[in-house]
Amino acid sequence: MDPIVYVSLGAALAAGLAGAASSFGVGVAGAAAAGVVAEDEKNFKNALILEGLPMTQSIYGLITLFLILLSAGIIGGGFRFAQPTTENLVKSAILFGAGLTVGLTGFSAIPQGVIAGAGIGAVAKNPKTFTQGIIFAAMAETMAIFGLVGALIMIATGVGL
């Protein structure tokens, strides 16, 4: 494959997979939020905060997309790996790997949505459990953060910004 294919796929997978996972996560939590608000409008604020938690993975995906495109020169100049040399192929493959890492770890948004959904229900039953609900849902975030950190290291040390 040409370096441009690796770079484009890396950027697309980072933002695409993480974004899709976030939408599923928000969807699950959003359905739960709709359920509790249907019973009592007072649940809206707590439900909204919990529902928004799975969105962060899509932000990580978007950050990675920008970094990949910036690093490859697609943003802010000409494409740096246009020649199909071995060095360019390796660098573009590293960018692909970075994008894939963020994309796959972004799937943590789906279980996070499930946890947030269960948390929304628990908070509707007992509002005192709001903080705990946030903490439980935030645990799933860890994997996405690891993925983002790994991708940043890959891009910074393997290719350079």
């Binding site: 699950v28 359905a31 939020a33 509790v36 019973e39 039953k125």
Partner: peptide, 11 residues
């Protein structure tokens, strides 16, 4: 997701 959250609010 929807029914169980709603039911918890009903509980």
């Amino acid at each position: 997701s929807y029914p169980n959250a709603r039911i918890r609010a009903m509980e």
